[in-house]
Design a protein around this nucleic acid. Structure first.
Lengths: 107, 107
DNA sequence: TTATTGTACAATCAAATGGTTGTATCAGAG
DNA sequence: CTCTGATACAACCATTTGATTGTACAATAA
C-alpha cells in the first residue's frame, strides 16, 4: 500500500498512469511528453512498476507500458474502508446518544 | 493531491487517520500507541494536517486531532476517474472492433 | 507556587527521492 | 555489417523525509 500511494503522490506519475490506462504507449513515447530527460521518465515508470500500478511488455525493441487497474482498486478499497470507519463512528455516537436519552415515561 | 497521497503513503499515518476518524484523540494519546518518539508522531500528524486530512483543535492543554473525510473523498474521486478512463478505453476498443467488422451481408 | 503534562519547534542525521549525465546493450533499418 | 533508436543501468547531486534529542512554553495538578 505504501508503494501504491507513494507512486500516486506525483503528478507526472499520475499522468503516466492515466495515459497507460487509456492507450498502449512505449517508454519513449511517454518520455517525449514531459520536460525531463528520458532517464527521469524511465524512473517514474519504474516507480509505478514497483507499485505494480503498471506492467511492461516488450514489443519489438520498445517496452509497452500498461496500466494495472487491479492495483488502483486496492487503493480504492482502502479509502472506502476509511469511509466505513467514519460512518461507524456516526453510528456509535447515535447509540451513545440513545443511551443517554431520558428513561421512557413511567406509563 | 500530491500531499494527500504522500500523506497516505505511510502505515503509521494511515493508522493515525483511521483512529482520528473513529474517535477523538489527542496527539499524546496517539504518541502512546507507537514505538517512536512523541516528536515523530507529532510530525506525522503535521504531515496529515498539511494534507488537510486531519485538523487539530485545542481542548484544555491538549490538541484533539480529527480526521477530515472530505479530503479522503477527493482522493477517492481521483481514483474513480482512473476507473472511468479504463472503462472508456474498453469502450473505445469496442468501437474500433465494431468498425473493423465485416460489412453486413448484401441484402 | 511549584511540579507535571502536553505541545511546539529547532537542530541534527541517515536514508530515500527526483533529477541529471554517461555508458552499455539490443533490436531493427539501410 | 553498420548506424540508429529504445531501453537499461550506474554514478552523482540537491532536496526531502523520517527519525532523533533538546529546549521552551502553556495549562493543569498538587
Amino acid at each position: 500500500m505504501n508503494r501504491i500511494f507513494r507512486a500516486l503522490a506525483d503528478s507526472t506519475r499520475r499522468d503516466i498512469l492515466r495515459r497507460t490506462l487509456f492507450t498502449d504507449v512505449s517508454v519513449s513515447q511517454l518520455a517525449d511528453s514531459y520536460e525531463m530527460s528520458f532517464a527521469a521518465v524511465q524512473k517514474h515508470v519504474a516507480v509505478l512498476e514497483g507499485a505494480r500500478l503498471v506492467t511492461k511488455e516488450p514489443r519489438g525493441r520498445e517496452r509497452m507500458v500498461r496500466g494495472n487497474l487491479d492495483r488502483i482498486r486496492q487503493a480504492q478499497i482502502l479509502l472506502d474502508r476509511f469511509d466505513e470507519i467514519w460512518r461507524s463512528r456516526i453510528d456509535r455516537l447515535d447509540i451513545l446518544l440513545a443511551e443517554s436519552d431520558p428513561a421512557p415515561p413511567d406509563t
